[in-house]
């Protein structure tokens, strides 16, 4: 390197001297970006949410003695959308149904663990499943409006079943819920028509309005667009981003692009286990687990 050290400018000579060790002694100090810990991070550390709305702790679920969920630990952030993804049979829907204790309703199904909603463990013996389900609305894969009821009555049904008798209040909540479900403009002149007279996408939004009428804190959505065309699906996705301003959404989806588009956090499940959980951006751009990478890239599942 000596032959380089012949500049007319002393500052340049200093620079050259400073760099002259490069040829003979490759650096292995932390100045190299490759030695920074962040570049080596492929750790198994569990992603944590601060002050979660819902905290699932050591949750296990069985069907007729067969283990379907294996020690799930997951936290859900308030007013954000969390997507549950994974191949068929991995336990996504079971997890969703455990969250509002609908799993209890399946014959021979049992669950163990803690699901903390704010400060309430919903699996405490004192917890009332009906009250819990009121705080957590659910929307299913296929739109399921009550077939004999009008659009208005579909939305009002839950309120009436829960003993709300004030007609003015019911009307207010129904109108608000239809607006909240982005359906109002399409049905405001047809509230007496049967719910099943609507298109598939409208029926699904009617079901969302029906859930919203109970003013839930969490909305659980089990593949809510799988039976809908792209336009109707797009409306539901837009609606979800509106809904998260007011409530927390957990969605099960088989559509990777949908999970990537709408969710803030994504949990990948496989064979009843939670494999990876993190911000959606990270899961889809740089998953930490090989299994996640292979699944979201369509290499299995």
């Amino acid at each position: 390197m000596d032959n380089l050290n012949n500049s007319l400018n002393p500052t340049v000579n200093e620079e050259i001297n400073h760099l002259s060790s490069i040829d003979s002694n490759p650096k292995h100090e932390s100045t190299s970006p490759f030695t920074e810990p962040e570049f080596q991070e492929k750790s198994d550390s569990r992603f944590k949410i601060e002050n979660p709305k819902l905290s699932i702790q050591s949750l296990k679920a069985w069907f007729s003695g067969k283990l379907a969920l294996k020690d799930i630990n997951l936290e859900v952030k308030e007013k954000q959308i969390t997507a549950l993804i994974g191949p068929s049979g991995c336990g996504k829907t079971t997890l969703l149904r455990c969250i509002n204790r609908m799993h209890d309703l399946t014959p021979n199904a049992t669950a163990d663990g803690r699901v903390i909603l704010d400060d309430l463990n919903i699996y405490d013996k004192q917890s009332d499943p009906v009250l819990i389900r009121r705080r957590m609305g659910m929307v299913f894969q296929k739109p399921n409006p009550f077939p004999t009821m009008s659009i208005f009555d579909n939305v009002a049904a839950g309120l009436k079943l829960n003993g709300v008798k004030d007609k003015k209040l019911i009307k207010e909540i129904v109108y608000d819920s239809l607006q909240g479900a982005a359906l109002w403009n399409e049905v405001k002149n047809d509230l007496d028509k049967p719910g099943i007279s609507l298109s598939g996408g409208q029926q699904q939004r009617l079901c969302i309005a029906r859930a919203l009428a109970m003013q839930p804190e969490i909305l659980l959505m089990d593949e809510p667009t799988s039976a809908l065309d792209p336009i109707a699906s797009s409306k539901i996705e837009e609606l979800m981003t509106e809904l998260k301003k007011h409530l927390t959404v957990i969605i099960v989806t088989h559509n990777m692009q949908q999970a990537a588009r709408v969710s803030d956090y994504t949990a990948f499940m496989y064979l009843g286990e939670l494999i990876e959980f993190g911000p959606t951006d990270q899961i889809f751009k740089n998953p930490k687990k090989e299994l996640t990478e292979r699944y979201i890239s369509g290499k299995f599942g």
């Binding site: 500049s7 340049v12 490069i22 490759p26 490759f34």
Partner: peptide, 24 residues
């Protein structure tokens, strides 16, 4: 990736050489 750090180091040298020769 193991040799990429060397490229960044060499780029610094190139910059130094460029400034040095320009001044000269």
């Amino acid at each position: 990736n193991s040799n990429l750090g060397r490229i960044y180091e060499m780029e610094e040298m190139v910059d130094v050489l460029f400034r040095k020769n320009l001044r000269e």
